[in-house]
Amino acid sequence: MPSETTLVEVSRRPALGIDPRILWGIGLALLIAPLFMAESYRLFQLTLAGIYAIAILGLNIITGYNGQISLGHGAFYAVGAYVAAIMMDKLGLPYWTTLPSAAVICGLVGYGIGFPALRLGGLYLALTTFSLAVAVPQILKYKGIEDWTGGVQGVLVFKPDPPFGLPISADQYLYLLTVVLALGVFLLVRNLMASRIGRAIMAIRDHGLAAEAMGMDAAKLKTSTFAVSAGITGLAGALSAIAIEFVSPDSFQVSLSITLFVGMVVGGVASIIGPVFGGLFVVFVPNLAEEVSKAAPGVIYGIILIVFLFVLPGGVAGLLRRLATWLKRQS
């Protein structure tokens, strides 16, 4: 059928003018290599970067693609993490059941918040989510729910053993789990953004009235997009609780939301691959800053960030895009 061949051509247009299979091969090798090379702390950091990448991808869907600013996605990360910790520690459920549960619960919370906030328009979503990010650590400390949340102490959990007697360490397994989940989520989001729904999500950002004239129910689509975005970030939060083996209110301060936002901008706003670089940035650059100056790592981090965005205004994804156009022009 002629229609299907075109569809394939459109979705598999070779990036960088290179056979996509080669790019996939290189990508997979890069993902598997750390299993054999990295010492366990580095591997743990890479696991964290992968988890942040998923969380940042979630944020990018609503803020990058849909143009609705969220300053409080750390709140969904926190809720996801607590859902996982409570399910494992208090309810004795296996770790893998917590991942879909966290995604669904955060999606529902996102829907509930997005429904009014997105209809009010303007910067309401930014302010509402910011308030949420401020409130969540305090709510988690609240005495009335201490039996569940562990109050200021938080909740301890244990990382899972590798399944099927795989001859790898728990850290290696967590890394693999994160990579597989991230690949799955990234693929689904890529499909979504290339679809009718993805086009509508971007159309609403570009011109809300014209989008409605095209038959797009903007209010409904924005709310659903926010729910999906919150669900994905919540999933990342659950994974972080499993990887870090501990949740406490202090791990989810407002700064976490800002970290996710920075990761999104650094990786590239409205990009699928960008959040991977955003995740690596927010995990490794603070470390680097600490190595440069023990006294004022925040200053160093700030300087690196500013220089980075000055050199790469479109984030890493923007650089890749420019590189791809340049390579295409060469060939």
Binding site: L188, N191, L192, R196, R199, D206, G215
Partner: peptide
């Protein structure tokens, strides 16, 4: 829709003819 290509703009016009939701699309 300024960030999109000409083809994507035209395809956006077909939105009301489609049925696929978030899950089916993903």
């Amino acid at each position: 829709f300024r960030s999109m290509t000409v083809r994507q703009n035209v395809l956006a016009g077909a939105h009301s003819q489609g049925r696929a939701g978030f899950l089916a699309s993903a």
